Simulated scan of single mutants.
Amino acid sequence: MTEDSVEPGIGEGPAKALSVSLPEGTVRALRDRAGNRGVSALVAAAIEEHLRNQATRENLAEFEKEHGPFTAEERQAAADVWSAAEGRESRWREAG
């Protein structure tokens, strides 16, 4: 990459082939749910979600290290926002 270019973030950039080994039962369940052509998209989405969750945990830990632990009220407010977001997502999925 040149000095002016920016490396792609999670979920960005051209697709690259990667070989992974998974248990047979996991592969069967994955193909049953995604079909052979949807496997890459489903695996990419799962890995991207995992990486974003990991980054969020690291960022929260860094914030708490710098500013002290979150209060019970802050944790409850975050839980309320998360619950509302999950409710919206479940309605979206049900609408199909």
Rank of each mutant, 00 (worst) to 15 (best):
L42W: 05
V27D: 11
L22G: 10
N36C: 06
A95M: 10
S40H: 13
E49Y: 07
P14N: 05
M1E: 06
E48H: 06
P23E: 14
Q54D: 13
G96E: 05
R91V: 14
R28P: 00
G96C: 13
R52V: 08
A44R: 09
T56I: 13
S5N: 08
E62Y: 00
R88K: 05
R33T: 14
A95K: 06
E3D: 15
A41Q: 01
G25K: 03
T26S: 04
R31K: 05
T71P: 10
A84H: 03
Q54V: 12
A34D: 01
T2M: 10
R88V: 08
F70N: 05
A95V: 08
V81Q: 10
D32C: 01
E94W: 02
V6W: 06
V81N: 00
S21R: 14
G11H: 05
R75Y: 05
H50S: 08
A44Q: 08
F70V: 07
L42Y: 06
P69F: 00
A77S: 08
A95T: 13
R93L: 14
N36D: 15
E58N: 13
N53D: 08
M1R: 09
L30R: 02
N59S: 06
R31C: 12
V20N: 01
S83V: 04
E24K: 04
V6D: 05
P69L: 03
E12C: 09
R57Q: 13
G11C: 06
E66D: 07
V27Y: 02
T2H: 12
G11Q: 09
N59C: 03
S19A: 14
R57S: 12
W82G: 03
A84N: 07
R33M: 10
R91C: 01
R91H: 10
A84V: 13
R75T: 08
A78E: 00
G25I: 11
L60N: 04
E66M: 04
E48R: 01
L22K: 07
W82L: 14
S19K: 12
S40K: 07
R93E: 11
A44C: 10
E74I: 07
S19G: 12
A78W: 07
E7I: 09
S5P: 03
V39Y: 02
N59G: 11
E24P: 02
R33P: 01
P14I: 01
A45W: 06
R93C: 03
E66C: 05
N36K: 10
A17W: 04
V20A: 04
A84E: 12
V6Q: 07
D4H: 15
E64G: 03
T26W: 05
E3T: 13
S21C: 02
I10R: 14
L60F: 14
E48I: 02
F70M: 12
